[in-house]
Design a protein around this nucleic acid. Structure first.
Lengths: 337, 337
DNA sequence: CTGAAAGCGCTTACAG
DNA sequence: CTGAAAGCGCTTACAG
């Protein structure tokens, strides 16, 4: 490996000068001639600074951890892409972590931080993480941004505009003429679930409708959760003409259960789900969704971390706004409906 | 941050002794008394070694890069989980990379390696990567393991037992009585696609059947690719009674297109797909799949990297064997079929 | 504008 | 069995 002193030797300057040139020293006290010779030498030798040495010296790692509960979730891929792109543009690396580790091995994050491997953490909490667990994450002044989870507390948070998303879904259904609307929500204790449910209730109230509690479930975001929710909901004496599903994954399960009972979507029941992932377009029927700005959330988290030092923030990412993606799972309720 | 010398001071020994104790020096030249005092001191101070310093000194990073073409792919999540678990157990961190970077920014991997940020790379090649590009990845003796892609070449490779997987799917269909079987494959130029297609042809030949070329497509693994393949295939004068789809994602698209044409699965056409992901169970009908050992592949790649030095290897991961997961997308062909 | 020097926190031959 | 010393490759006050 070619090192700083090699470049210095070739350029005929001191290592210090090379360091200053290459790091784009803010107080640029370097002559143009020196700069040029250094740049030429570095290029010629294909010099790449040693990360460990720089990190040891500066106590900065240019690395952040992305800790998520579930890589298979509807939201992860886009989130990761946004984070990765923003990180890449800033020369930051992203190390992957699974949120289960926070439970299985409580020292894991502390160790990662303690070893000085990361400058900060982007953390999506598993649904229903007790607030007490949050406190325990406040580690040695390493910045942590909690995303798509809680929207207050001792750690910085960035959340999606869940209320706007739900409103979009509800507007769509209302415009189609639905009044009997059910809600398939996140886990009881899930922060996003609570926000989405609250937004659903608010939208119903605004429309002068009162939600039918038998049509509301809180079983979670996974496909199997959605299916279980549908099983329960479809037991009701009367059925809603439309469902707002708080997560696309759950919506797949709902769809499967509805098919199983030989009901029709959207003929018997319309479905609109939060989050837009490729498979929303590959189900039968394709599912109308609300596209949330997930890649932007990932990017925003990286930015927040990179620019941190501003203390704890609590942000709702309301731009770009959620977008309704109309597919074939929604239609006007049947005349008899 | 508490450092080595703090532990040494508390234990009343030299930093060197602490280092030896804590690193579990192979040539354990340390008395039991010293060891105990050091351990006690380290525990008391909650000592965690500084990663940068250790890395600078040893030139090892305990970090590997996991570079994949697409985090949304059917295979990624499980792969990542397997890699993450194995890495975690070995105290290795995993940094995430997107394979597009290999194209967009040809120096990216070289830089990552050059900076000394990683000890090795697990790389899933984008489908159809030209062999020449492989050569260019042979970087400064940093071990690279190419997974689920090519199965030979200048870099180490580990692939799934695609042939066994396809054979399982074919056996299932043959046992149900199918003879008119189509194949929806990976991209032309995709190594996995080629292996799966070859296995399909072999299985057909073994059964004394000759594949109908109009029923074979090579459009890729994405949902939209599957749909495009189905569009083309369903134009044929006669239709197959069953399809082997080389990737579950594509199978969703196939299913959607079949629905769109008011054909029935499995009534008109049976479908069996490679890879088993949660949503195979949440489609309508749920899809019969072949479960491939993806998490084991991820783990094996980590192991190969960690134990590398053994030179270039080419491995087919044939254990655990692929497993058929029978759901409702396959049935005997209709009498008239 | 530039260089000499110290030091970030470890590990590891080398002595003893 | 243990310690003193050197050094991994950088950066950054401090002089000049």
């Amino acid at each position: 490996m070619v090192k700083l002193s090699d470049v210095a030797a070739l350029a005929g300057v001191s290592p210090a000068a090379v360091s200053r040139v290459l790091s784009g020293d803010t107080t640029l006290r370097v002559s143009e001639g020196t700069r040029q010779r250094v740049m030429a030498a570095a290029q010629q030798l294909d010099y790449v600074p040693n990360h460990a040495a720089r990190s040891l010296r500066t106590s900065r790692t240019s690395t952040i951890a992305l800790v998520v509960p579930d890589v298979t979730s509807a939201v992860f891929a886009e989130l990761a892409r946004g984070a990765e792109d923003e990180a890449g543009a800033r020369g930051l690396a992203i190390v992957l972590g699974r949120a289960e580790r926070l439970h299985d091995d409580r020292d894991w994050l502390r160790r990662l931080v303690g070893e000085g491997r990361i400058d900060g953490v982007i953390l999506q909490l598993p649904d229903g993480t007790p607030p007490a667990d949050l406190e325990s994450l406040v580690v040695q002044d390493t910045p942590i941004v909690v995303i798509n989870s809680v929207d207050d507390g001792p750690l910085s948070t960035i959340v999606l505009d869940d209320a706007a998303g739900i409103r979009l879904a509800m507007d769509h259904l209302r415009r189609l003429g639905h009044t009997d609307i059910g809600f398939i929500g996140g886990l009881l204790g899930s922060a996003t679930g609570a926000r989405r449910e609250a937004a659903f209730r608010a939208a119903m109230a605004e429309a002068g409708l009162s939600p039918e509690e038998a049509w509301m479930t809180r079983l979670g975001y996974a496909g199997t959760d959605g299916r279980a929710a549908a099983v329960r909901l479809l037991e009701s004496a009367t059925l809603p003409t439309a469902l707002v599903v708080a997560n696309l994954n759950a919506a797949l399960g709902v769809l499967a259960e509805i098919h199983d009972r030989d009901l029709r979507v959207p003929g018997d029941i319309s479905i609109v789900a939060m989050h837009d992932v490729w498979y929303a377009d590959a189900t039968w029927p394709p599912i109308t969704t609300v596209r949330m700005p997930l890649s932007e959330l990932g990017a925003a988290a990286v930015v927040a971390l990179a620019d941190s030092g501003s203390g704890v923030i609590h942000t709702v990412l309301d731009s770009p706004a959620p977008q309704l993606v109309v597919r074939r799972s929604t239609a006007a309720p049947r005349a008899g409906g």
